[in-house]
Write a protein that binds this DNA or RNA. Structure first.
Length: 287
DNA sequence: GCGCAGGTAGAGT
DNA sequence: ACTCTACCTGCG
């Protein structure tokens, strides 16, 4: 068990973030999204979460100012610290926001605690292929279906059973429409083809990791079903390219309303983080 | 019943 | 280069 006091960290807000598709409350019957309970602003009774990343499992809990991570110190240092980007003070990003930009100042304040997770590349490719023209509830269900059916079953030392994210090889041999059984709809063939390309070595995951933002984006868009928005999401959440600024319907609306002349260029190097503040502002407060 | 949900590929101007 | 549409599915 590892305890950390973190001023720029709020687990509740992490768990509301859409890039954590596999994150959810432990206790049955609780709303999967704490934000849906508008009133409970202070103490949230369901503040304990399970986080499954790749084949790893973690339980974590917000205790006032502190976050408790139920794992060995070494596993925290070797993996979860980097996963949650805890070696970074997000105040450094927030302080770069122009004080006169009241919209962004307000969005960043509301999104205080949000962090860009460092997630697995293959997992992000699949997750965001599934995300297109889809809603968050169904996206989560799709991914759970995939993991249950094709992911390796694991057990923690405390006896919790869970499913790892399926490796490309587990999906590569399927028919293109096989994943419609997992509720993916027309996205089934996108995922199967991506799995095949990775498993056959046509698409080199580790190679993409060493590319610049622009090159990685171009490379990702070679995958069938990956367009600009999905490529940017993958760049942001798997490759940590903070120049990536995924524009979806929500962001497009917000840009039209608050930045009719385009998003300020001065934010180029951190606009991925700011995108998240804007995105969650649209989710929580509407456009 | 119809439009939409964290888009994209492909066809048609 | 731009605009339009089909695409799975479930929910309001």
């Amino acid at each position: 068990m590892t305890e950390r006091k973190l001023s720029h960290f709020s687990l509740g807000q992490i768990c509301r973030s859409g890039q954590c598709f596999r994150m959810g409350p432990l206790m049955p019957g609780q709303p999967p999204n704490p934000a849906s309970a508008e009133s409970a602003e202070e103490e949230q009774p369901w503040s304990r979460y399970r986080i499954i990343a790749g084949s790893r499992y973690l339980e974590a809990e917000q205790q006032g100012e502190n976050c408790v991570f139920y794992c060995e110190e070494s596993e925290f240092d070797d993996f979860w610290k980097g996963y949650f980007h805890l070696d970074k003070d997000y105040g450094e990003y927030i302080r770069q926001i122009c004080p006169e930009d009241s919209y962004l100042v307000q969005a960043a304040a509301a999104g205080y605690g949000i962090r860009i997770l460092h997630q697995d590349l293959w997992e992000m490719i699949v997750s965001f292929l599934i995300s297109q023209q889809n809603n968050i509830v169904r996206i989560r269900r799709c991914i759970e279906n995939l993991c249950e059916r094709y992911g390796e079953t694991r057990c923690t030392d405390t006896g919790v059973i869970y499913h790892a994210f399926p490796v490309p090889e587990a999906l590569a041999g399927l028919k293109e429409d096989a994943l419609m059984a997992c509720n993916l709809g027309y996205r089934s063939k996108y995922v199967v083809r991506a799995a095949r390309n990775v498993a056959e070595g046509i698409f080199d995951l580790s190679g993409v990791c060493s590319l610049s933002y622009e090159d990685a984006r171009q490379e990702l868009m070679k995958l069938y079903g990956v367009g600009e928005k999905v490529a940017d999401c993958i760049c942001l959440f798997a490759l940590r390219h903070f120049q990536a600024f995924p524009v979806d319907t929500h962001i497009r609306q917000a840009l039209l309303k608050h930045y009719p002349d385009g998003f300020p260029g001065r934010y180029r190097n951190i606009q991925g983080v700011l995108q998240q503040y804007i995105f969650y502002d649209t989710l929580w407060n509407g456009c």
